[in-house]
Amino acid sequence: MTGALSTALRRGRRLSRAQQEDLQGRLLVSPTVLVVVLVVVLPFLAVVLLSFLDVRLVDIPRLSFATLEFTTDNYAEMLSNSRFWGALGTTVAYATLTTVGAILVGLGVALALRHPFRGRGLIRALVLMPYVLPVVAAATIWKTLLNPQYGWVNAFGTDVLGWDGPIAFLSTTSEDVAGIPVPVTLLTVVAFEIWKTAPLAFLFITARLQFLPSDLEEAAEIDGATVTQRFRYIVLPQLRGVIAVLVLLRFVWSFQSFNDVYLLTGGAGGTEVMAVKVYTELITRADIGSAAAYGLALTVLLSGLLLIYVRVNRRSEVAE
C-alpha cells in the first residue's frame, strides 16, 4: 500500500517535472521563434503571395487584401525571358566554380599548415582575415587594385608582364585568349568569392585534421607509403565528411550570393546572377511581383538541389 502510493507519487512527480520541463523549454525558445516567424516565415509566405500579384513599388501605400487580383503573368514573363535563363546559367556556373575553388584552396592551405612550426598561429590568423573583413571594404580595395587607369594589377601587367593594354576586369563579358573566349569578369568575381570564402573551408578542414589519429599514417609511412599515397588512401577518406558539409554550405551560400557580385560589377560583364536579378527587378524596375517570382524560383531551385544532395548523400552512406 505505502509502496504503491509512493510509486504513484513518484510517478506523479516525475510526470509533472517532465511537464514543467516541457513548459519551460517552450517558454525559453518562444522569443526566438516569434522573431523568426515575424521576420522569416511570414515574409516567405508573402513572397509566394506577391509572386502571383501584379504589384509595383508605387502601389504599396494602396495595397489591401480586398483588391488583390491573382495572376500567373509574372511567371509567364519570367520563363519566356532569356535573361532569366541566362541568370540561371550564370548562377550555377558561379556557385559551382566558387564552391570547388574555395574547398580546393582551403584544403591545400590546411595541409600546408598541418604540422606545427614557429609562427604558424600568426599565419593561420592572417589566412582567416578575408573571411571577417567587411565585404564592402574588400570589394572597394579589389576594385581599386583592378582599376584600368591606376590599379596595381593592370600597371604590373602592362609594365612588367608586357600586356598589350590594361584589362577591364570588371566589365568584360568575354575576351579571346589564344582563340578561346574567356569570361573575364565572371572569373574575376569567382576569384573574389573564393578569396573571401576559402578561409571557412580552411578552418573546417583544419579542425578535422587535428582529430585524425596519427598511428595509421605512421604505420603506412613505416611500410613505405609515399606522401601522396598517404594523402590519397588515409587522409582524404577521413576528410570526406567535412568536405561534404562544406560542399553543401558553400554551394547554398554561393547560389544566393548578392553582395560580392553586386558590389564588384552591379551585374555587368556577364555576372548577372539570380540574386542580383531579384534586386534589379525590385529596385531598378520597381516590379515587386516579378522580383517575388524570381526570388521564389531561386528558393525552389535551391531546395530541389538540397533534396537531391541529401538523397545522394544518404545513398552513398548506405552503400558503405
Binding site: D22, G25, R26, P43, Q256, A275, V278, Y279, T299
Partner: peptide, 26 residues
C-alpha cells in the same frame, strides 16, 4: 525536452540556409 523541439531546430536550420535576398522583397 519539450514539444516541438525538432520542428524548432529545423526552423532555425532553414533560416541559416534561406536566401536573404528573397526575404528582402516582402
Amino acid at each position: 525536452k519539450f514539444f516541438g523541439q525538432r520542428t524548432v531546430s529545423a526552423l532555425f536550420l532553414s533560416v541559416y540556409l534561406f536566401p536573404g535576398i528573397v526575404l528582402a522583397v516582402p
